[in-house]
């Protein structure tokens, strides 16, 4: 599904190159659940952002669902990720001005779904996450765990093949975190969503099928669970 070959990301500082990602190659099959670990500054988030096409590598080859991403134009790339990728953030990043319902609905609006379709899809999602009662509340009125639930619902609403999560439980207490991880596992097993998550927590990493350890922009180790 995803193939990164010799991907590097560096910044030019004076005469020297400062590598954030240093020659990483990675293959991801559909249906995998990968946890990326590593200390601060090891390049986890940058790698995730490159996979999610929010960031561009300085060099290397990037293939995704059969497309040659590094050769695509901005528009095509954004069409690609709109269609296949969902994002979940540590700080949830819900839109404060929109209700729960509207937050979940927004990606559909941008993908030109008809109003009746949107209604059905959002209702379905609210039902599935058991947040129907909260649909008219604003993010500020929700707990962190609830907000992250909405964030995940939003990421999933358009039916992505790949879910990218950047420390999804980082701002949550352990109980809430566990619930989110259970949800990820379920999504991966039952719905076949490929998941790549960045995490600091050993425990959360073990929900995945593979753990990749980064250090100084390189893959230090990779183990299949």
């Amino acid at each position: 599904m995803l193939s990164l070959q010799h991907i590097s990301k560096f910044y030019q500082v004076g005469g020297t190159r400062n590598f954030v990602i240093n020659d990483i190659s990675l293959e991801v099959e559909a249906g995998e659940f990968i946890s990326i670990m590593g200390p601060s500054g090891s390049g986890k988030s940058t790698l995730l952002n490159i996979i999610g096409m929010l960031d561009e590598p300085s060099s290397g080859y990037h293939y995704f669902v059969g497309e040659t991403v590094h050769q695509l134009k901005d528009k095509q790339r954004s069409a690609l990720y709109k269609k296949y990728i969902g994002f979940v953030f540590q700080a949830y990043h819900l839109i404060d001005e929109l209700t729960v319902y509207e937050n979940i609905e927004t990606p559909l609006i941008y993908q030109d779904f008809k109003s009746t379709e949107r209604k059905a899809m959002v209702a379905d999602m609210l039902d599935r996450f058991q947040i129907v009662g909260k649909k008219d509340l604003f993010p500020a009125q929700l707990s962190g765990g609830q907000q992250q639930l909405v964030g995940i619902a939003r990421a999933l609403i358009a039916g992505p093949k790949l879910l990218l999560a950047d420390e999804p439980t980082g701002n949550l207490n352990s109980k809430q975190g566990e619930e989110i991880m259970q949800l990820f596992k379920k999504l991966n097993k039952e719905d076949g969503v490929t998941i790549i998550q960045v995490t600091h927590s050993e425990k959360n990493a073990e929900y995945g099928s593979r753990i990749i350890n980064l250090l100084d922009g390189r893959i230090e180790s990779s183990k299949q669970l």
Binding site: K82, F87, L94, I95
Partner: peptide, 10 residues
């Protein structure tokens, strides 16, 4: 808000 809208497909 704007960044989020972009990331979710705007």
């Amino acid at each position: 808000e704007i960044s989020m809208r972009k990331i979710i497909g705007a």
